[in-house]
């Protein structure tokens, strides 16, 4: 049995002036100064995204904040089947079903809360929904808020988006 030896390319030995670093440091300073000056003069070179005003376009499959879809008449499309809350690994969806005022719909969610603090944005709920009633295509994160209660999204908030 032979032991395999892999030759790894070593960095080349430094020449004497390089090993003094003096010139190299000055060169480095030149590079950074170049960036500094060009960025002051030409602001386009700056990569920063000015966050709240400018938003990075999200890829189409990005899983963001949830929203509940509406029927044509504005009622929630959700029929409170509990599939999403059953699939949810974080157990953060609370549904209370009720008899819908619309007899053709029969069942609808009286309460539909998502605890965004517990949600792991896995998208299982969207996958599980037989009615395409819940989506995560808002292209946006959960915004921060100052109380826990405000981050438990109720059916009204979810329908708005």
């Amino acid at each position: 049995m032979t032991i395999g030896v892999i030759k790894v390319a070593r960095p080349r030995e430094m020449s004497f002036p390089e090993s003094l670093y003096l010139l190299e440091i000055v060169k480095g300073l030149g590079v950074t100064m170049g960036h500094l000056l060009s960025n002051i003069v030409r602001q386009e070179g700056i990569k920063t995204i000015e966050y709240p005003e400018v938003r990075r376009p999200m890829p189409p499959r990005f899983r963001g904040k949830h929203r509940l879809m509406k029927r044509e008449n504005g009622a929630p499309r959700c029929v409170a089947c509990y599939c999403c809350s059953t699939a949810c690994p974080a157990k953060c969806i609370t549904i209370v079903a009720g008899e819908s005022p619309d007899p053709a719909v029969e069942k609808y969610p009286v309460r539909f809360d998502i605890d965004m603090l517990r949600c792991v944005f896995c998208g299982m709920c969207v996958e599980a929904c037989p009615c395409d009633a819940i989506r995560m295509d808002t292209g946006w994160f959960t915004p921060p808020d100052d109380t826990r209660e405000k981050l438990i999204f109720t059916i009204d908030t979810l329908l708005e988006k």
Binding site: V79, C81, E106, K107
Partner: peptide, 8 residues
Amino acid sequence: DCPICDQA
């Protein structure tokens, strides 16, 4: 009707 059927 499974989503709204109690038998599901």
